[in-house]
Computed example of a mutant assay.
Amino acid sequence: MSFSVEQLTRHPDFVSCLRFLAEALRARYDSGPRIARLLASHQRWLLTQTAYALHLEYDPAVPGSGLTVVKLRDVITNYRVASRNTVLSFVDELLTYRFIVPATGAARRPRRYEPSEVSHAAMISWYLANLAALDLLDSGGRAVALAAHPELVDLAQPRMARRCLEEAAWREPPERVGLFLWTEAGGLVMDHLMSRLDLSTEVDGRVNLGRIDTRAIAAQFMMSRTHLQRLLRKAADHGSLGWYDEPKKTRLWLSRDFLDEYCRWQAVKLCAVDEAFAWAQSVTASAHPVL
């Protein structure tokens, strides 16, 4: 039985679940910054997850299936996630850093690609982190099951990615959430803020995030300090956060209504992650009862 969006958003420990996930994803960034940045903005998240899903959906009997530039471009532009040129640049970047490689024995036209080993490991790590966060809510054994049978990702990931791409509630974040998530490295900044959450500090709808060193954060996430300060200023203009010590701007608070908005958006994705994994387990169990 997997969680619904409403069950997740109403769960008393859901904020703690998201804080755990933010800390886990930040740890992944520290161990592999370049590949972690593929999921650091919402557009890149959608591109990466869709590309990986297309690879897993490859069927030798279906011409043009699998991860090709044409297939990725058609799916992404159909949902207006990115332009044709953005898709081409994204694939070029993946090739440059060898996150994808030409598929063995694939025809030259259209050229089919497959993720490299580092990309496979990163996707399993990402799915594990999300499942571990869900386990905190019901003492489930999802993460243990995936660690024991990582091949379950091959079934779960495409189903999760397709659902997230098709659901406007995830594909198109609320304006204030999108302010962070549509920007370069904005997802990393949001994870950093979430990792600092302590709801016991909430007073008058403001959660105290403590002292913020924008210079150190910008350096860690390989972004300009000016870009980070501009992002925080825009968020403050929208009432998402603010400073206790104007004009120094060193002690930050997060508004509870913005946090609730972000939680509901994240619940859509986690619901898809949960449902797809439960489905993958049931399909595998039916085919191989020993699992």
Rank of each mutant, 00 (worst) to 15 (best):
G210T: 03
G210C: 02
E202G: 00
R264F: 10
R230N: 14
L134T: 02
Y58P: 00
G64L: 09
L199Q: 01
T214Q: 08
W253A: 05
Y79S: 07
R206P: 04
A145F: 00
G178M: 06
A185Y: 05
L179D: 06
P174Y: 04
R225D: 01
E172I: 15
R215M: 08
M123S: 04
Q281T: 11
A168T: 14
V273P: 02
E166G: 04
S139L: 10
M222C: 09
V62I: 13
T214L: 04
L146R: 03
L179K: 01
Q43S: 11
S200E: 14
K71M: 10
D213A: 06
R28T: 08
P158H: 07
S65A: 08
A156I: 09
S240M: 12
F90T: 05
E6I: 06
L155Q: 07
A129M: 03
E23C: 10
P60E: 14
Q281F: 02
M223I: 15
Q266T: 05
V290Q: 12
V290K: 07
Y29W: 08
S2H: 14
R109W: 13
T68A: 08
S31I: 10
D260P: 02
S282W: 10
R176F: 00
L252Q: 10
K269S: 14
A24N: 06
V207Q: 00
A272C: 12
E23L: 13
Y79H: 15
D138V: 08
L291H: 13
V69E: 15
E114F: 07
M222D: 12
A147D: 11
G64N: 10
H149M: 06
V70M: 09
V273A: 01
V101Y: 02
R109Q: 13
D198P: 00
L131E: 01
T48E: 06
L232S: 03
H55M: 07
L270T: 07
V273D: 07
E184K: 13
A219V: 04
H120T: 02
V203K: 15
I217G: 06
A216M: 10
L128Y: 05
F221A: 03
L47R: 03
S41L: 03
A156D: 07
V203T: 15
L95G: 09
Q266V: 06
P63M: 12
L270W: 04
N78W: 10
P247L: 02
T86N: 03
R34H: 13
V101D: 01
D274F: 11
S4P: 08
R171S: 09
H288N: 13
R225Q: 13
A36D: 03
E151H: 09
A143S: 15
S286M: 11
T183L: 05
L209P: 06
S139H: 15
L199N: 00
W253C: 02
Q49T: 15
A278R: 14
